[in-house]
């Protein structure tokens, strides 16, 4: 059984090399998590009191300004950060895709990268070698896979990373923003594959600034603001709250048509009618009891 269960989770980063004095001024800043200054070492409270329960079939969109804690929350869900307070329990095989420039040795080839990523995701070398042709075809990188990673553009790196995670059938797929770096034609391909994957695998958590992508892949959303959960519920309501307007006003006709097939209920039912029905069973976070 695939599940995510985060309760009252806090993530506090100690920043050892920052001068407290200058950091204090930033407490008033609007961007980024809250910076505490009680202790000697300045602390960035990147996540505060986050509650999130997800189970099979949930597709969560994460929205919020830069520095609102989206990536930190994704890392928490991936098991990279363990909460400083509270708890986070994730059951299932997680495949995260984070900022793609970092981590991998830029001198290694695309092939090499596929293998290493696969090994990290729990596959064996042999299993990955079997998938290489498939990944090469999907990413359209072809012979370029033999080139060192430093020669790749951002979009090509995204292709590579997506190629790997979509080929291994993860149970929990975690995507950070950055997907926007690929071109439209590849995006169409990737979207189909992601949808397919979401149908099969358990949980998708996706941080993005693109309404269209979120509308197509997700059905619920969480709005992060200064490290806290501002709102959690049905995708359309949260996006409306976050952007201040209904997301459907701005999407292209083409997308609307596609959505019409994929998520008929999203369009058919009026937004206020379904607001509470789904939000309550998936979210403890919106309950005012925990707010502080």
């Amino acid at each position: 059984m695939v599940s995510i269960d985060v309760r009252n989770a806090y993530v506090d980063f100690p920043i050892f090399d920052a001068k407290t004095r200058s950091m204090k001024k930033r407490v008033l800043g609007k961007v980024g998590g809250k910076i505490g200054s009680d202790s000697k070492v300045p602390i960035i409270e990147a996540l505060q009191d986050v509650n999130l329960q997800l189970s099979d079939g949930d597709r969560l969109a994460l929205v919020g300004h830069n520095g609102a804690g989206k990536s930190t929350l994704l890392r928490l869900l991936s098991g990279i950060y363990e909460p400083t307070r509270g708890s986070a329990k994730v059951t299932g095989k997680v495949a995260p895709v984070f900022d793609l420039g970092v981590g991998m040795d830029p001198e290694t080839s695309g092939f090499e990268n596929i293998i290493v990523r696969g090994l990290f995701l729990g596959k064996s070398r042999k299993e990955m070698e079997k998938r290489i042709d498939d990944i090469a075809e999907f990413t359209e990188l072809g012979d370029y896979l033999a080139m060192p990673l430093r020669t790749y553009s951002t979009g090509m790196r995204v292709r590579l990373a997506l190629g790997v995670v979509t080929s291994i059938d993860p149970e929990i797929l975690i995507l950070d923003e950055g997907l926007g770096a690929v071109d439209a034609s590849f995006m169409n391909k990737a979207r189909d594959r992601l949808k397919d994957l979401v149908k099969r695998s358990g949980i998708l958590v996706f941080a993005s600034h693109s309404d269209e992508l979120l509308l197509e892949l997700c059905d619920q959303a969480m709005w992060m603001d200064e490290g806290r959960v501002r709102q959690h519920g049905r995708l359309r309501e949260v996006l409306t709250g976050y952007k201040g307007r209904d997301p459907f006003q701005n999407v292209s006709r083409e997308v609307l048509e596609r959505l019409g097939q994929a998520n008929p209920d999203d369009l058919a039912k009026p937004s206020d009618g379904t607001a509470n029905g789904q939000a309550t069973d998936t979210s403890a976070a919106t309950a005012p009891a925990n707010g502080g």
């Binding site: 890392r75 991936s78 098991g79 990279i80 997680v94 995260p96 984070f98 900022d99 970092v102 981590g103 991998m104 990523r117 990290f120 995701l121």
Partner: peptide, 9 residues
Amino acid sequence: EGLIKQMPA
């Protein structure tokens, strides 16, 4: 550092 922040392991 890069891998630690990118891949759970």
